[in-house]
Design a protein around this nucleic acid. Structure first.
Length: 526
RNA sequence: GCGCCCGUAGCUCAGCUGGAUAGAGCGUUUGCCUCCGGAGCAAAAGGCCGCAGGUUCGAAUCCUGCCGGGCGUACCA
């Protein structure tokens, strides 16, 4: 298993207030901590369900009478299969809603650690494409989720601004500028000519490399900013080479007896640490490999942070064993964690028609073009609708459609609708005391139960590194709200008006927070 | 060949730290606008969870082997 350097998974699963009380009651009574408290399948009676009696092989009626002593539990009952199903009291549901609508910390975690997220890190040799967009959407959302869980987050962009690819870029542009053919394996395409034209002349290929690299990098950040992805730092590969860090790390590996010369190149014995072959650090021409500077970069990060998270496209997954081999060879797995997250690639389409992603001029769709066509919100939401492990089908036609079919609008609409109710009522929520939620009925209960799932959901996203669970959850919240709103009158409902407004505010807050965590706006009007 | 990911409804996919009758959206069929935003709601139909074994009281979930698809397998990144 390459990906074994995880954060400790499943340890930060959070419960809401009433779940915590119930869980603790079970643990104290039965003397163990591995008992489950989950939501029963659809169609089953009860709000929560536990396997405690089954696992501990005790009489369910004993568990039931213990649970029923709690204020949070209205009743509990044995199900045929050995589960105990629990009905949560109205008192607990009201208290939960009051908690959701007070303060701004509902579902926040208190994890400790300094996490560096490395994402996109595209070579500055061409425009960002849709795949980079997925990496950015996943990485940035994960950052927001980790932050919500309590970690300090630092987002870094590693630039491969040295080496052969950059030289090729410079040479390609220089040649075009002077009306010559680009070198073999060089860069082509309309964007190369555009850059050449807008640069205003260079004396040498080296100068072209410099200028073009900066132009393209600036352009990457401009597009990422349009995507609401901002970085804390840009880390230059060149700086590592120039300040001697790369030489130093090679020296260190050398002293550990982990390098050797073969065919004129210097090799790292990565196969001693699980890689399927050894890797070159210095090519026979004397050039450093990207891998060599990557080692230096990862060592540098390990000194600055407690957790490293790298977000890479599936086309880079073959790179994992060697970087992990380096990590282990330095004994770094004992002083911190490194997590490499791989996401599968994106297939663009319009309805049933596939959009070619060939890099030949004219067929290449950039990330910016996608954002401009379907909008930032829809782009980000769509990128996160699937598990990172699954290839993503991105339907541009659906993404720009403004209807219930489009999940982005469906979710955002629920937020706008609630804002509209408050506008209509002429009330600001600040003027309502959430403590007055008391007296909610069965319809409201169903909504609060879904809202109360939020703390668990967010912690699960963080633990599993799966921001896509949020998009799914938001649809669920929106569905339960639209359904509720369709059947219940809020304004002018007498004694129920206030509790119902509090409920709406609860829905609004969860939707808004959830959308924030995936980097999508929560409009008050649409 | 080897490595990683995926195979669940017509389509796109959740679920996979083992648990009750396997879920959602789209598509299809049928209803709901005197009403706080219909950019909405309700209902129906639709499944050997790729195949075969194994572990277990219990498997879509864990293990093994196949089959199918994607990606990777450089002194490119």
């Amino acid at each position: 298993m390459y990906l074994s350097l995880h954060f400790s998974l499943y340890t930060l699963h959070r419960k809401n207030m009433y779940e915590l009380k119930i869980k603790k009651c079970l643990e104290d009574f039965l003397g163990r901590k591995d008992l489950k408290l989950t939501v029963p399948p659809k169609g089953m009676k009860g709000d929560l369900s536990t396997n405690a009696a089954m696992v501990c092989q005790v009489d369910p009626s004993k568990v039931i009478s213990e649970l029923e002593k709690l204020d949070e539990v209205e009743s509990a009952a044995k199900a045929g299969s050995g589960f105990v199903n629990i009905k949560v009291s109205d008192y607990a549901v009201n208290a939960e809603l009051a908690e959701i609508t007070s303060g701004t910390k509902y579902g926040r975690g208190s994890e400790k650690g300094n996490v560096v997220l490395e994402m996109v890190s595209s070579n500055p040799t061409g425009p960002l494409h849709i795949g980079h967009g997925r990496g950015a959407a996943i990485g940035d959302s994960l950052g927001r989720i980790y932050q919500w869980a309590g970690y300090n987050i630092y987002k870094e962009y590693y630039v491969n601004d040295a080496g052969r690819q950059m030289d090729l870029l410079g040479q390609s542009i220089f040649n075009r500028m002077n009306g010559k053919e680009v070198p073999e394996n060089g860069y082509r395409g309309a964007y190369i000519d555009e850059i050449a034209a807008s640069m205003g002349g260079c004396k040498s290929a080296g100068e072209c490399t410099q200028k073009a690299g900066k132009m393209i990098l600036d352009d990457h950040f401009r597009v990422l900013s349009k995507f609401d992805v901002e970085y804390d730092n840009v880390f230059s590969e060149k700086s590592l080479i120039e300040n001697g860090d790369v030489d130093e790390i090679i020296d260190t590996l050398d002293k550990k007896g982990l390098t050797y010369k073969k065919d004129g190149a210097l090799w790292f014995s990565s196969s001693k640490f699980g890689d399927d072959q050894d890797r070159v650090l210095i090519k026979k021409e004397g050039e450093l490999t990207y891998f060599a500077s990557d080692c230096a970069y990862h060592l540098d990060k390990s000194q600055r942070f407690t957790h490293l998270v790298n977000i890479w496209g599936a086309d880079h997954h073959g790179y994992i064993p060697r970087i992990r081999a380096f990590w282990e060879s330095m004994g770094l797995d004992r002083s911190g964690t490194m997590d490499i997250m791989i996401y599968q690639l994106v297939n663009l389409k319009r309805g049933d028609e596939k959009v070619s992603m060939s890099t030949r001029a004219g067929e290449f769709i950039t990330l910016e073009e996608v954002i401009d066509e379907v909008g930032k919100d829809a782009s980000r939401f769509f990128m996160l609708m699937r598990s990172p492990d699954s290839p993503l089908e991105f339907d541009m036609e659906l993404a720009r459609e403004e209807s219930k079919k489009n999940p982005v609008y469906y979710v955002q609409y629920s937020h706008a609708r609630i804002c509209s109710v408050f506008r209509k009522a002429g009330i600001e929520f600040k003027s309502i005391d959430p403590g007055q939620a008391g007296g909610i009925g069965p319809e409201e209960r169903e909504v609060v139960k879904v809202l109360a799932h939020f703390p668990y959901l967010v912690s699960k996203c963080a633990a599993l590194k799966s921001p896509h669970l949020i998009t799914e959850y938001l649809r669920e919240v929106a569905t339960v709200f639209h359904k509720y709103y369709d059947g219940v009158r809020v304004l002018g409902s007498g004694a129920m008006e206030k509790p119902r407004l509090i409920l709406l505010e609860g829905v609004r807050r969860i939707i808004k927070t959830g959308l924030y965590l995936i980097g999508v706006s929560a409009p008050e009007k649409m």
